[in-house]
Nucleic acid binder design. Structure first.
Lengths: 336, 336
DNA sequence: GGATGATATCGAAGCGCTTCGACTGAAGCT
DNA sequence: AGCTTCAGTCGAAGCGCTTCGATATCATCC
């Protein structure tokens, strides 16, 4: 292994000078800098990460705790993870992947051992036991998702309440009077995850404000369950013409079922999905949707973490505003 | 931060003794062990990862290089990544997440800096420039996927050639005489990824051996492209009754299209998918499928990496045998 | 009963880096 | 000319751990 001492010898300087060339913490003459950089190239030098962490008390690693299985849509999780990793690299940091099932022990371990300089938590529950532990460690922390009590925390999430409202607004603007929310599975509402409940609250509040009749049905997302949910909704309220779909898995079955029943989208029935743009674009017809800004959430989480690492201790809750894109699945309500 | 010295003082022993308690590399009396463990508990001691890496020359970190965007199905990538992480933790290792777009530089960086003890590469291309670099570093390496030349490498993958064959066998056994492979998008075949080509080769060879007529069509996986592909196949060879689907995204559109066209699965048409079990199970009807053993691949990759870390320098190519599960999407060919 | 071999523990060196204080020489003042 | 100032560099300490002898104790065996 090539050490800083060898680079120093090759460049004819002391090892501290090499260190300063690398860290830019002291001024270095142009001449010396060139010699050192040449030596680094020549020898293929890479500073030893452990030695650096020991001496500087920074590992340049951000821990990311990802759900193994969760209510979140897997591609969204993946996109967030990739965005975090990419953004972290732009700050010269690496990402350590932890699974949520490591729980509080995992949090203690990585911050206690100095393995990570900061921790980003995904799939945060309303009353998440990792949060107090994380605050106890005093290390920079960012949550993707909202717990019940956000006091003193830094969080990033889509504003799901506003999202529910935006979907209703869009359908109301198009003249729909009866709308339905095809939600996540019952288990998601029972479990202590906030996003489904927040979407529902926004959906219902806005529907009331706009004077629409609103129905909400949880849905597992399988073909059969979607068929059941759709049948129930149309039976109870046959005049329903606008659907908001939160469960990504229910989208394909829903489209298929509507086609089979002879309903044409968007002429007879309008659909607004809450899903990644990619999903909306590969459906047929392409879906009007509020996108899940996975990349933005991941990148912002890292930025917040970096701000904390640089001494910014303000907590903040960053709710990204919903962005609704009109595509081919929504249109004016049919005139009765 | 709590150091080993503080633990030692609290336990009334030397710090080397604490170290040996932790590493079990020398025998320690029961009495001393208890005192040390109590002190560790009391103080909430976590060894400093950097210091440990520096002194022992092992970081206890495995780097995992994941594709940002690729031909692979995202949930499969995710499942592999999670399996790698879980299995790594069972060996006391952590996982560092790298993106494929860091390329050879990323490989050099993590192994050159001693950040990772081993590297696992996903989404390996036939002629992958990361591979020679990785071999050059001399650090333990495992590939998930097969490059063209596997000499001296350790690889783990599903045996896609046998998979193509197994799908044909299943359909042939059921009496189908005309089969079609709905493959990945053209781009996948053009790009230098092996799994699609290997599946196709196995499919065609076995079809020839069994005397079936076989058609292969690439497919983008969108509703429109699937519709086009299906129409083309049925036009060219209307007697086609067996479909093998490799592109996960094409599954839902295909089922929907067949339903619309009045064909009943499996009475009129049989489908065998190559996809994760989860996808096969949530379709309607549930699909006969060869599963993508994502978890097994991830776990085995880690095991191979650990074997190499423990000095096993044999290279090996581990091709997991396809496992075909019969469900409701395949049945006897209709009698003409 | 002294040599032998385990077993249990300690002290110290050293891993490769960062960082602090000190030093040097040149430039900028008065 | 003598002073300060500052850019540029060096040497050494020290980060917290592992690991290699060395040592001490004790049971075992002729």
């Amino acid at each position: 292994m090539v050490t800083i001492a060898e680079v120093a010898r090759q460049a004819g300087v002391s090892s501290s000078t090499v260190s300063y060339v690398l860290s830019r913490k002291r001024s270095i003459s142009e001449d010396t800098r060139r010699k050192v950089e040449a030596a680094i190239q020549d020898l293929g030098y890479h500073p030893h990460a452990g030695a650096r962490a020991l001496a500087s008390n920074r590992s340049d690693i951000i821990a990311l705790m990802v759900p193994l299985r969760s209510d979140m849509f897997v591609p969204v999780i993946m996109e967030i993870a990739m965005a975090v990793t990419t953004q972290a690299r732009e700050f010269g940091k690496d990402v350590l992947l932890l699974t949520k099932d490591e729980g509080t022990g995992g949090v203690r371990r990585v911050s206690g051992s100095g393995l990570a300089d900061a921790v980003i938590l995904m799939d945060v529950e309303l009353d998440d036991d990792r949060v107090p532990v994380l605050q106890g460690t005093g290390s920079p922390a960012v949550l993707i998702g909202l717990p019940a009590d956000t006091a003193g925390l830094t969080c990033v999430d889509l504003d799901f309440d506003a999202t529910g409202g935006a979907c209703v607004d869009h359908l109301a603007d198009l003249g729909h009077r009866d709308v339905a929310l095809i939600g996540e599975s019952e288990a998601v509402y029972r479990r202590h995850t906030g996003f489904a409940a927040r979407t529902l609250a926004g959906f219902q509040r806005r529907a009331a404000e706009r004077g629409l009749r609103a129905v909400h049905r949880p849905c597992e997302g399988t073909y059969e369950s979607t068929a059941g949910v759709l049948a129930r909704i149309l039976e109870e309220r046959p005049t329903t013409t606008g659907f908001v779909v939160q469960n990504e898995a229910a989208i394909a079955p829903l489209l298929s079922l509507l086609r089979l029943s002879g309903r044409v989208v968007p002429e007879d029935t309008s659909i607004v999905a809450i899903c990644p743009d990619q999903v909306a674009l590969q459906s047929s017809p392409r879906l009007t949707s509020v996108s899940i800004p996975a990349e933005e959430m991941g990148r912002n989480a890292v930025r917040q973490a970096m701000a904390q690492l640089q001494g910014d201790r303000r907590s903040s809750v960053m709710l990204l505003p919903p962005r609704l894109t009109v595509r081919e699945s929504s249109g004016a309500a049919p005139t009765a």
